[in-house]
Every structure is written in structure tokens, then in C-alpha cells.
Amino acid sequence: MSDFDDDKLAVCFKALGHPARLAILRALADEERCCCGDIVGRLPLAQSTVSQHLQILREAGLIRGKAEGRKSRYCLDRAAFLALGEGTTALLDMIVDPMAGMACCKTEEKTSL
């Protein structure tokens, strides 16, 4: 598996589990760097709400932020997304492997006497 263990995968999946954060990631994917105000201008959300979502994405390691004067600029951490993709693929490969779950959850019918 990649550098993403189950705890890291869970943190990233949780961060990705909100439509506003997905919209923020799409906005960041369109630009090399964005400040919070740029993102606020693209979304129907208050600045404080966007800031909270940016913080969650940053804590999950999916984006990076850098102070530039009085503003912070954010960008995607593309290496983190690559590792997340590898970790997710490894997990899904285990889940959908047709040989791994052949006997899974087979229920036996109870016979009545």
C-alpha cells in the first residue's frame, strides 16, 4: 500500500466528504494558487465558512497554505493526492478482488424441525 495508512485515508475521506470542500478543491485545481477571497468569490459561502473548510483540507494534508503579506495563498498538494489515489486504489483492489470474498456473508438456511 502507499504511504497512506488507514488513519490517514480516513482523515482524507472525511475531508473530502463535504460538497463545499470538493468545490474548493475544484477552484484550487483551476488555479496555481488562490487566496481565500478568490475562493469566496466563486462560492456561495461566507469567508469564515471557506476559511474553516480550508483549514480542514489543510489539516488533512490535501492543500498547502503560505502567508503572502496579509493574505494566505492556498494550493493543492498534488503529491498528497497522488498518494491518496494510490492508497485508495490499493484499498479498492482488496475490496473488489473477486477471489478475496468468495465465501463472504453466505447465509445458511435454517432447517425447521
Rank of each mutant, 00 (worst) to 15 (best):
M1E: 11
M1P: 12
M1D: 13
F4S: 03
K8A: 11
A10Y: 13
F13C: 12
K14F: 12
A15R: 04
L22K: 02
A23Q: 15
I24V: 10
I24H: 07
I24P: 07
L28A: 01
A29M: 07
D30V: 02
E31Y: 00
E31C: 02
E32D: 10
C35P: 14
C35G: 06
C36Q: 07
C36L: 09
G37Y: 02
G37P: 09
D38Q: 05
I39V: 09
V40Q: 08
P44Q: 01
A46I: 02
A46T: 01
Q47G: 15
Q47D: 03
S48D: 08
S48V: 10
T49L: 14
V50R: 03
V50A: 05
V50T: 02
S51D: 09
I56R: 05
L57F: 04
L57Q: 08
L62T: 03
R64Q: 10
G65E: 07
A67D: 08
A67V: 04
G69F: 14
R70K: 15
K71T: 10
K71C: 12
S72Y: 01
R73A: 03
Y74I: 00
Y74N: 00
C75V: 01
L76I: 02
D77A: 08
A79P: 07
A79F: 15
F81Y: 10
L82V: 12
L84C: 09
G85W: 06
G85K: 04
E86P: 04
T88D: 09
A90D: 08
A90Y: 09
A90N: 07
L91N: 13
L91R: 15
D93A: 10
D93P: 06
M94L: 08
M94C: 15
M94D: 08
I95P: 14
V96L: 06
P98M: 00
P98N: 01
P98K: 04
M99L: 15
A100N: 02
G101D: 06
G101K: 05
M102Q: 09
A103M: 06
A103C: 12
C104D: 14
C105Q: 01
K106E: 05
K106A: 15
K106I: 09
T107S: 06
E108C: 07
K110E: 13
T111E: 03
S112A: 06
S112K: 14
L113C: 02
